[in-house]
Amino acid sequence: MTPGARRVLEAAGRLFYERGIHAVGVDLIAAEAGVTKKTLYDRFGSKDQVVVEYLADRDERWRAFLAARLQEAAPEPEASVPAVFEASRAWAAKRSGKGCSMVKAHAEISDPAHPAYAIITGQKAWMLGLFADLVKGHAPDAEADARLARSLMLLHEGALVAHGLGLFPDPIGQAREEARRLLAAAG
């Protein structure tokens, strides 16, 4: 990726997250990135592709961040599941003051035909799969494992939304403690 393209993605990411995808035009992205509109279109082809690249980059960075945190945790669900919540808490403190970027993007892009839709829903499906992998064999049977994974996903996603709304302190920490209770009850 060229330095200009990287600046476009950085500017777009900041602007999309702070102001919303539909509220930000290519003129503003180009100006913030210090490139011409022609350069933006030469590198990305369209605003939709900038959105795709922004979300894909954010997802890739989140997955790497979470993988590093999970490597530090013991593999048992009692350690690995809270580690997901702790990673989300750390990520949100530095990068997501307004809540989850994928949830925010989905509020604006709900059409399955949009090229960014698969990235948004794919990230959430990946998170559900991660929770399923982390708790596999923890509950009495496979269906109970699946219910536990879905409950953990709901806790996690709700905590991210509550964090973005700022209605009460430390929703991600509270969700982590609820996750611990769910794990204890299921095991």
Rank of each mutant, 00 (worst) to 15 (best):
R89E: 15
P169C: 07
V161Y: 04
G97M: 12
S101H: 08
R180S: 11
L134C: 08
D59Q: 13
A149Y: 03
D141T: 12
G187N: 11
A118K: 13
D42Y: 14
L165W: 07
A184F: 11
A64V: 13
A186H: 04
L148K: 10
A179W: 02
R150K: 14
L9V: 12
K94E: 15
L154E: 13
K38A: 15
R147Y: 08
R180K: 15
I29N: 02
A87W: 00
K124T: 00
A31Q: 15
Y54G: 00
R63T: 05
P3V: 06
L40F: 10
F168L: 13
R6K: 10
H156F: 14
P77T: 10
M153D: 11
E178W: 11
M153V: 02
E157C: 04
G129Y: 08
E18Y: 04
A12N: 04
G99I: 05
A142C: 05
V84M: 04
D57Q: 14
V52G: 01
C100P: 08
E60Q: 14
K104T: 03
R43P: 00
S80R: 15
R43C: 10
A67F: 05
P169N: 11
L152I: 10
R181L: 15
P171K: 02
K104R: 15
G166D: 10
W62Q: 12
A184Q: 14
R7D: 14
I21H: 05
L155P: 00
S46G: 05
G45T: 09
A159D: 02
W91K: 03
A30V: 11
G25R: 11
A90G: 04
R176G: 03
L128H: 04
G122Y: 06
D57E: 14
E108M: 11
H163E: 11
K124Q: 07
A175G: 06
A12K: 00
A5E: 09
V8H: 00
F168M: 11
H106A: 07
M1E: 06
A93G: 09
A125E: 13
K98P: 05
A186F: 04
E53L: 01
L66S: 04
G99S: 09
P112I: 13
H163T: 08
G25P: 10
F85L: 04
L40W: 03
K104G: 04
G166Y: 09
R89L: 12
R7A: 15
E60I: 02
W62H: 12
R89N: 09
Y117T: 02
G99C: 07
W91M: 02
I109T: 03
M1K: 02
Y41A: 05
G173P: 05
G137L: 06
A67H: 12
M153W: 12
K104Q: 14
P82N: 13
R63F: 05
A79N: 08
A125C: 01
P75S: 14
E60A: 15
M102E: 01
R14F: 05
K37Y: 05
Q49C: 03
G45V: 07
L9N: 07
